[in-house]
Amino acid sequence: MKLVYALFTGLIFGIGIALSGMMNPAKVLNFFDVAGTWDPSLAFVMGGALVITFVGYRLVWRRNAPLFGDRFQVPTSTKIDGSLIGGSALFGIGWGIAGFCPGAALPALGTGRWEVVLFIVAVVVGFVLRRLLAKISRAGAAA
């Protein structure tokens, strides 16, 4: 039941991504191209999503626990460090190069476009590189 529910939330999220225009790199890149063919539509995506999550999360947190679990698991760290800022800066650079972000690319896989598959594979390579680098730097720190 938990897995069916998870599939349902993924489907809703994916429908929202598809309707919003987020899975269209031409639109994403134009959103950032203020000096050129600017299309401000995607600011409305974030606006709409935040309206719902800002209110919805607070209603949900009135419960003691989620439907299929014993507690809510939200990140509690407040540390702003080089990894957070550097990683976010890199993420933005990659987003500006490719025009896809992970949350848009996962539902976009369902369109069957090979470019999306290529992007997802590249993202996974990025994950693996990051993990390798973390291992190397840990080994270096230990030595």
Binding site: G16, L19, S20, S41, G69
Partner: peptide
């Protein structure tokens, strides 16, 4: 690309719903 404020806002609302349902169900 066409300016699509209504579709984008509506899509955003649905994205938010997905996030709220995940919090409600799985936390």
């Amino acid at each position: 690309t066409d300016f699509t404020p209504f579709a984008s806002f509506g899509g955003g609302l649905v994205i938010g719903l997905g996030a709220v349902f995940l919090m409600l169900g799985l936390g």
